[in-house]
Simulated scan of single mutants.
Amino acid sequence: MRNAPDALMLFAAGFGTRMGALTADRPKPMIPVAGKPLIDHALEQINGFSISTIVANLHYKPEHIASHLAGSGIQFSDESDEILETGGGLRAALPKLGDGPVFTMNTDAVWQGPNPLAMLAQNWDPKKMDALLLCVPLEHAVNHAGSGDFLIDTVGCARRGPGLVYSGLQIIKTEGLNAIPDRAFSLNVLWNQMLDKGRLHAIAYPGQWVDVGSPEGILAAEAVLGEGNV
């Protein structure tokens, strides 16, 4: 079993209900932001970092994403019959992702700054971590409402509480998924087990991260990307 992540799960199966009419005829990852589909902004981060296997889960209007990514080498995990949430979706994709830790990445954010996958890989220590979350200080989390999700102690362990926002990107070991009885479940179930053992870690991202979960997020992302001449 490998100890360094060489596979990535793209979460692309959500309904995008906060986008309103924009998702009436397409899934959220296909909404244009700065002239290209939102999912392409995630792929830009991945393309700058060497990963052998990428899997995207599909549910709502899956043909749009499948057609867009045709020929890219990205594999698909079909959830057309039942959306499985993040935990169930990751478990269903494991035959394609393989053994060992994997990256998981949401497809509803835009990044401006250092490569976030490289930051995670550089800080990953499987001897003391079961998951490493990339979190964003509130002042760098554009278009995000709320007080944050996690705090980080002096040795890098995460605990729940107002502070930093989870970015939707992490490295996680997947062995614990098979012991969870539910078919559809959130990765929070697995995180809670890791928290109890002191093996959920987190680091802070120094660049800007834009939550593009709403129409307002599109404008915010385009403003940030414009400032960065992207």
Rank of each mutant, 00 (worst) to 15 (best):
I218F: 07
Q193P: 13
A158M: 04
Y205K: 10
Q45N: 10
L117A: 09
L97C: 14
L58D: 03
G213F: 04
I83T: 07
A92L: 10
A34N: 12
R91M: 02
N3D: 14
V210Y: 04
K173M: 03
G207E: 08
M1L: 15
R160N: 07
P137W: 07
G98H: 11
L22V: 09
T53I: 09
L38D: 04
G87R: 05
A220V: 00
A118V: 01
A202K: 00
A93T: 02
F76N: 05
V102A: 04
V136Q: 15
L164P: 08
G198I: 00
E216N: 15
V110M: 05
L200Q: 00
N57S: 15
Q75L: 14
T104D: 06
Y166W: 14
D211W: 01
F11P: 01
A92R: 09
F49C: 09
D99A: 13
S80F: 07
M105Q: 03
V224A: 06
A66D: 14
A221E: 03
L187K: 01
E79H: 13
G71R: 06
L8I: 10
G228S: 15
V55T: 10
V165A: 11
K96Y: 10
E175L: 06
T86R: 00
A66P: 13
Q170M: 14
N192V: 03
L151Y: 03
L195N: 06
P37N: 08
E44W: 11
L84R: 04
R159V: 00
A220S: 12
N106P: 10
K36M: 12
T53W: 05
P29S: 04
G217F: 04
E216K: 10
L8V: 09
D149Q: 01
A56L: 03
E44I: 08
V165I: 10
V155N: 12
Q112G: 15
G161E: 02
L10V: 09
K128N: 13
I31C: 07
I171Q: 01
F103I: 00
G146M: 10
G146N: 14
K173E: 13
I171D: 06
N115Y: 12
V212D: 05
P206D: 06
D78L: 02
N229Q: 12
L138E: 12
V224G: 10
L132F: 09
L22T: 11
T154I: 10
T86W: 01
Q112I: 14
C157I: 04
P5S: 12
R26I: 11
S50V: 10
A141H: 08
